[in-house]
Write a protein that binds this DNA or RNA. Structure first.
Lengths: 332, 332
DNA sequence: AAATATCAGTTAAACGTTTTCCTTTTTGGG
DNA sequence: CCCAAAAAGGAAAACGTTTAACTGATATTT
C-alpha cells in the first residue's frame, strides 16, 4: 500500500514562494496579504490539497480544540444521550468531542485516558474511577469533570443525586399502595449503595418491606436472566425497581413470559428514562435523570474551565418522576 | 485556575541525572540499564508523575496507535453496536478507538475528519459522504474504510447489501400472505434507493402493491409522527416496513394508540435487529444486519491495512431474517 | 517633507518526543 | 592483563507547526 505522505506547510511555502510563517498566518487568517501572495497561497494549498496537521499545531499552541469523553458503555442509551448532549454543546462552541468506550471495565480506563489526555483540552469521565487514576488526572494540566453522583467538592461532578432519585421513586410507589418492594441493583456500581439508601429512607418509615437482589450486568439480558430469582419466590414483591430501565425492561419481559400480568401481578419501574421506555408494553414508569442535560451541563462547565471564563451558575439537575402504566393498577 | 504543566521527559532526565535519550529508551523499554540508572529513572518518573506525551511521540514516529470512527448517530443502537464491535477488536490489538458523532449531518463531517485524521492511524466513516471529502480522504496517508452498502471497488466498505436485506424481508412477507405493502423509508440516506429496489424486485413479480412513504429522521419519534399518514389512508397497507427498527417501533406504537391491533389489522417489520426489538410488544420482525460483526470486521481490516499485513479473507456479512410476532397472523 | 505609524513578510526558537550515530564503559576470553 | 566485543548512555537532528521579534516598505500625520 502506498502512503503518499501528506503535504506540509513547507511544501506550500516553497510552491508559493513565501516563508512558512506566512503560510501559517494565512491558514490561520491572522494578517492581511497582498493580492499576489494571497492568490499564490490559495492556489498552492488547493493544488497540494494541504490541510493543517493539528497534532503539530497542538504541540506548539498547547490547545487542541478537542474534548475527550470516556463513557462506561455506549450501548446503554443513557450514555448515548449524555454523549449527544455533550456533543452538541461542544460543536456549538467550536470543539470536537472524542468519545471512548470503557466497556464497563474500570480497570482498563487508565491507558485510555493516557491516550486521550494529550489529544484534548479537557476530559470528562463517566464513572467513579480508582484513586490512582483520579490522582493522575489531578496532576494533569487539564480541566477534568466527572459524570455521576456528585460527592466531593474538590472535583467537578455533574449528575443527579442517586439518593434523591431512588427516594422519589419509592415515595410514589408507596403512595400507589405497593407493599412489598424488590430492588434489582447493580452492586458493581458505586451509586448502588446510594440508591438503596434512598429507598430505605422512604420505605423504612412507611413500614414497607424491601428485598434486594443483584444483577451481574446493567443490561436487558441480565435483567431477564435475573428476573426468575425474584419472581418465583413465595414472598414475591408486588413491585420491582430495576437498576436502570434496561434491567427493568428485561425483567418485565421475563415476567410476562412467565405468565404474570404486568402491572397487576407484579409492577415494574426503572431509572434513567431512556427513550425506548415509552415504547415497551406496558410503558415503563421511571425517573428521568436528565441524560442529555447532564451532557450539556458538563460540557458547558468544562469549556468554561478551559477558556478560564466564569463558571456558569450552578445548573442543578433535578430528577423527575415519569409515571407510566407499568405501575398503575387502576386506570383513572 | 492553576495549570501545573505536566512534567516532560526533560524534567525526568534532569532529576535522574541522565540524558533525555536514556529516558526515552527506558520508557519504551528499548534497552537494558544499569541497576543504578534504572532505579533513579523509576523514582524520578514516579515522583514527577511523568507520563509520555503521545502527541509528541506521534509527531516523530508517525504512529498514534489510535483509530478514528465517525458515526452517523450514536443514539441509534445500530451504530452503538457497530462501535462496540469495533472497540473490542481495537482494544484487543492494542489500539484505542476514538468515536465522533456526526449528528446525521453529512455537511459537517469534513472538519470532524480533519481533526480526527492526524490523531489516528486509520479512519472509519459510517456514511456515504460527499465526493470532495472522499477525495480528501484518498489523499491522506492513512487507511480509510467505510461502513455501509459496499459499492465501489477502490474503497473498502463493510456492511450488508441493502438490496438483499430488503428482498429478504419482502420475500418472507409475501410468503406470509401480505397483499398491500407500505414502506416508510428515509430518503436522505443513500441506501434508501437500494432498499426500494430490493423490495420491488420481489413485490413486482408477485403482483403485490407497494406504497412508499418517507420519514424525516430515522427515529422512534419520527416514525410515530409519520404513522398516521399511512395508517389512515383508505387503502391502508396490511404490512408496513420501517426504514429501521426505530421507525418501525414508533409506527407500531402509534398504530396501537390509534386502536389498530398489531399484527392483525396491520403488521410491522423493521431492519437492523437492534437489541430492544425483542422487547417491544409485539416483538418486532426484522432483518439482522450484523451490527456488531460489521464493527469487528471493519476494524480487523483497517488494522491489517495499518500494519500492512495481508487482508483477512473477505468475511462477508450475511443479513438474516429475524421472525417475531409483529408479522405473524396465526400462531402455529 | 520629515517623522512616525502601519503593513507585509521573514527569521529562528520552541513544543516534547524518537532515533541514528557516536562515545564511553564494562565484560569476558585468551 | 590486554584487547576486542558488547553494553550503556549521550548528542543532535527531526517531526510540522506557531509566534515573538525583527526588517523594509508603504502610508499617514503634522
Amino acid at each position: 500500500m502506498k502512503r503518499p505522505k501528506r503535504p506540509t506547510i513547507r511544501d506550500v511555502a516553497e510552491k508559493a514562494g513565501v516563508s512558512i510563517a506566512t503560510v501559517s498566518k494565512y491558514v490561520n487568517g491572522q494578517q492581511s496579504f497582498s493580492p499576489a501572495v494571497e492568490e499564490k497561497l490559495r492556489e498552492a494549498i488547493e493544488d497540494l490539497g494541504y490541510s493543517q496537521n493539528s497534532l503539530a499545531r497542538a504541540m506548539v499552541t498547547g490547545r487542541t480544540t478537542a474534548i475527550g469523553l470516556a463513557v462506561m458503555d455506549l450501548a446503554n442509551p443513557h450514555y448515548s444521550n449524555v454523549v449527544k448532549g455533550a456533543n452538541r454543546v461542544a460543536l456549538a462552541n467550536g470543539y470536537n468531542l472524542f468519545v471512548v468506550d470503557m466497556e464497563e471495565s474500570i480497570a482498563a480506563v487508565r491507558p485510555l485516558l493516557e491516550a486521550l489526555a494529550p489529544r484534548t483540552d479537557g476530559l470528562i469521565v463517566s464513572a467513579r474511577i480508582p484513586k490512582d487514576v483520579t490522582d493522575w488526572l489531578a496532576e494533569l494540566d487539564k480541566p477534568v469533570a466527572f459524570l455521576g453522583q456528585p460527592e466531593r467538592d474538590d472535583v467537578l461532578t455533574v449528575g443527579t443525586d442517586s439518593v434523591q432519585v431512588a427516594a422519589l421513586l419509592a415515595q410514589y410507589l408507596v403512595r400507589q399502595g405497593f407493599k412489598r418492594f424488590g430492588y434489582m441493583g447493580y452492586s458493581r456500581a458505586p451509586s448502588n449503595a446510594d440508591r438503596i439508601q434512598g429507598l430505605r429512607q422512604i420505605l423504612e418509615p412507611a413500614g414497607v418491606e424491601l428485598l434486594i437482589f443483584d444483577v451481574d450486568e446493567p443490561t436487558n439480558e441480565a435483567g431477564e436472566r435475573a428476573a426468575a430469582r425474584v419472581l418465583l419466590r413465595p414472598d414475591r414483591p408486588d413491585v420491582i425497581i430495576g437498576w436502570n430501565d434496561l434491567v427493568a425492561i428485561g425483567m418485565m419481559n421475563e415476567a410476562r413470559s412467565l405468565g404474570f400480568k404486568v402491572p397487576f401481578d407484579v409492577a415494574f419501574a426503572g431509572i434513567d428514562n431512556i427513550p425506548i421506555s415509552r415504547y415497551v408494553t406496558p410503558p415503563l414508569t421511571t425517573v428521568d435523570v436528565c441524560s442529555q442535560a447532564t451532557g450539556e451541563v458538563v460540557m458547558k462547565k468544562i469549556i468554561a474551565m478551559i477558556e478560564e471564563k466564569p463558571q456558569p451558575t450552578d445548573l442543578t439537575l433535578e430528577p423527575a418522576l415519569i409515571i407510566r402504566e407499568s405501575t398503575q393498577l387502576h386506570f383513572t
